[in-house]
């Protein structure tokens, strides 16, 4: 378990233990030339545990699988699904599928970016809100679509962003109180 402590910086030890035993259970042979094939699976697990894949987690995974850090980083950067930044308490997703896109979701995204002063993929400095884009969510009839948690807003135009944000702020505050 020495590696667990070596790379631990800020994230909970408990989660590293879980990830460690997940990898152990895969029973990967260190000489297996295909062991890289497990990389995506392990990163999936890691992201579900930590919520995101910062450098300390990447290095842990690299060490654990005997691949180099640059390779792990390359794979993470290639797949949209993986993120190296923590999500905000409230995550706002704008659909960029074809239907939403042609009905102006880009303008909606711009408006959110201006409102929050972050770019898509970013998190506000207080950690409350994050913004990202999705591919088609299967609600094309409502295009453009914005999702906040499991709540869906349909037929969104840039003028509605203020109202949606009011909901988001309420949601963030209530999460704060429930703590």
């Amino acid at each position: 378990m020495s590696e667990v402590t070596e790379y631990k910086k800020i994230l909970p030890e408990e989660l590293y233990r879980k990830l460690d035993s997940f990898v152990e259970d895969l029973g990967i042979d260190s000489k297996d030339p295909r062991k890289k094939g497990y990389l995506i699976q392990v990163l999936h697990k890691a992201q579900s545990l930590f919520g995101y894949l910062p450098e300390e987690v990447q290095k842990f995974v690299a060490r654990k699988l005997g691949v180099c850090h640059s390779e792990v980083s390359g794979v993470i950067s290639f797949y949209n699904f993986f993120t190296t930044l923590p999500k905000g308490k409230v995550n706002i997703s704008i659909c960029m599928g074809t239907a939403c896109f042609v009905r102006g979701s880009e303008k909606v995204l711009k408006e959110f970016e201006n409102f929050l002063h972050i770019k898509s993929g970013g998190v506000t400095s207080d950690g409350k809100f994050s913004l990202d884009v999705l591919r088609c969510v299967g609600a094309c009839g409502l295009a453009p679509v914005v999702m906040v948690g499991d709540r869906v807003y349909g037929n969104v135009n840039p003028k509605m962003v203020g109202d949606i944000m009011t909901d988001c702020i309420k949601l963030a505050n209530s999460m704060e109180e429930n703590k």
């Binding site: 180099c68 850090h69 640059s70 390779e71 980083s73 390359g74 950067s77 290639f78």
Partner: peptide, 9 residues
């Protein structure tokens, strides 16, 4: 040395 990688897409 392995410090370079294809990054993003």
């Amino acid at each position: 040395v392995k410090v370079l990688t294809g990054y993003k897409r």
